[in-house]
């Protein structure tokens, strides 16, 4: 937790104001030095997002360069009447550019079909067993339910969660879900207040409302996954993944 990265509300507001001025200079006056300055100012965001895709057969530097293209597109397409910050607008553009790059390169993750099928059936099995047993099932019980082995269950769980671009974008078990980084679309009203806090809080405001609520329930209220799943209408496994994904995203953003 690098607290030195924390910005005060006034600093954050000042940064957004400066972005606005630069965007106006670029879009209204054609000032390309303003565009270059905007790119420089937001490269840390690109680097932070690029790190999420490291270790998948492509160098981090290359991923950052692809992400930078997304940033430039976001700057060029930004509409001044939009009431969002450039960082908020640019994030899905950068992530989208990186994902497209991996797809185009044919480096998307290939998971063995048997594990995919096991993973797909696991979410329902966990919820079914939880209802039947009145508690969270053990791995052995899940394996028995699915006529599998505990080792295969653990492996399928890991496969489903490790490759988050697959699992969170497509929604295992048929549940509708989007990559949290792609659902960012509006300013969080509490963001300025969040930025005054230490640790993971500055990034908290960038999460979609549903993920923020899940984190609050888990870590503020101390609710177990089963209750959270009931409240938000998702499977227990899906809640687990959203928690992991959210914490990881927040950590990466602060790195």
């Amino acid at each position: 937790m690098r607290q030195s990265r924390t910005r005060s509300p006034s600093e954050a507001a000042k940064a957004r104001k400066q972005d606005r001025l630069l965007l106006r200079r670029y879009h209204l006056d054609g000032d390309t030095t303003a565009r270059e300055e905007l790119i420089e100012r937001h490269l840390p965001l690109v680097r932070s997002l690029a790190r999420r895709y490291a270790g998948r057969g492509e160098s981090l530097e290359d991923i950052e360069q692809v992400g930078a293209i997304g940033l430039i597109k976001a700057i060029d397409r930004f509409e001044l009447e939009r009431e969002v910050s450039l960082a908020t607008y640019a994030t899905p553009n950068v992530v989208g550019e990186i994902k497209r790059h991996f797809r185009d390169k044919g480096w998307s993750i290939r998971v063995p079909r048997a594990l995919q099928e096991l993973n797909a059936s696991m979410s329902n099995a966990i919820d079914r067993l939880t209802g039947r047993l009145g508690r969270s099932p053990s791995i052995a019980e899940i394996a028995a339910e699915l006529k599998s082995t505990p080792e295969e269950v653990l492996e399928a769980l890991e496969v489903g969660s490790a490759y988050s671009t697959v699992s969170l974008s497509t929604g295992p078990g048929g549940e509708e879900d989007l990559d949290p980084m792609e659902t960012i679309g509006k300013e969080d009203e509490g963001f300025d207040q969040m930025e005054t806090r230490t640790t993971l809080e500055p990034a908290f405001g960038h999460l979609p409302e549903r993920e923020r609520e899940i984190l609050r329930m888990r870590f503020d209220e101390g609710l177990p996954q089963t209750q959270i799943a009931d409240r938000v209408g998702l499977s227990q496994m899906h809640v687990s993944r959203l928690i992991r994904k959210s914490l990881s995203t927040m950590r990466d953003e602060l790195a």
Partner: peptide, 22 residues
Amino acid sequence: AVVRLIVGGIAESLDFAFDEVD
């Protein structure tokens, strides 16, 4: 991911529930 698998395997050997493993 390797560490997660190992931790999961150890917790499973003690018959931890899914949420406890997690």
